[in-house]
Amino acid sequence: MPLSVDSSAVHIQNFAPGFTTTPGRAPTSVTVHPVALFSILDHYLRRTDAQERVIGTLLGKRSENGEIEVRSSFAVLHSETEEQVAVDMDYLKTMYELHHKVNPKEGIVGWYSTGSNLNTYSALIHNFYSQETAPHQAIHLALNTGVVEGEQAGIKAYVGSPVGVFPKPENCVFTPIPCELRFQDVERSGFDLLTGTAASPTSTAAHPTTDLEVLENSLQSVSAMLDRVLSYVRSVLSGEVKGDPAVGRYLMDTLGASTDDLEKNGFNASLQDTLMVSYIASLVRSQAEVSSRLALVTAT
């Protein structure tokens, strides 16, 4: 899913002269895991007053087709003044080694910074990270936290290439590449939990919820969707709105599914199984309880 407002930018593949012999392909798209995103936001919250922006390292994997998967990130110390910019290299090395111990599959793929302005220092830092990720190209994620009024929160991804006849590290072309948020199905539930929490007025949520509550919520949202479809169909039937044939086709595919095989005792058998399982479950639990109580009774 997209991470920022649609832009009209054309994603140009910029093959820099220095990278023609790059093994693998140049990065064509970036996917970001929620963990990386949340870590960046947390780092931004914990910045010191003096810091305009924070930077850090992105860890992840490259795939053959040029897609870069950003799986996690960690903060890196840096300082920016009028005259110079410095990145704590030792810190980066230590942190990378620590992460590498737990997650050997993740390598450095690039760097992030908050705020969406690219400047000379960005080019310098990018040049530095390009050495870290060599022979691959480094990517840069610019995350706009949306705290500045009038700016939309979002993430933009760039690849950088040297520019000019005599390339200098402080000159760099940042070419935007597509970037989206992605996670595994398993992680989805956690993400839903957080979006639900974020939407609540106090930003906290009691926990844990039971499976039944989750199911109830899903059913309610399905029911709301059905209502929406129904009101649309009604308005088409009454002639208020012109019907969209594509929608009609989708509706037919979704709602016209055959339930014949389900009718044939499928449900009954499954129902009996479930009841049996439920019985076994309570049997096992009571046996375990009895057994633990009996252990407390001595023979004498």
Partner: peptide
């Protein structure tokens, strides 16, 4: 021990933008 989930303001607003 009772457990609560909390999202900080920045994260809440970012997730809000996404959703």
């Amino acid at each position: 021990v009772p457990l609560k989930i909390r999202t900080n303001a920045l994260l809440s607003s970012f997730l809000g933008t996404l959703a």
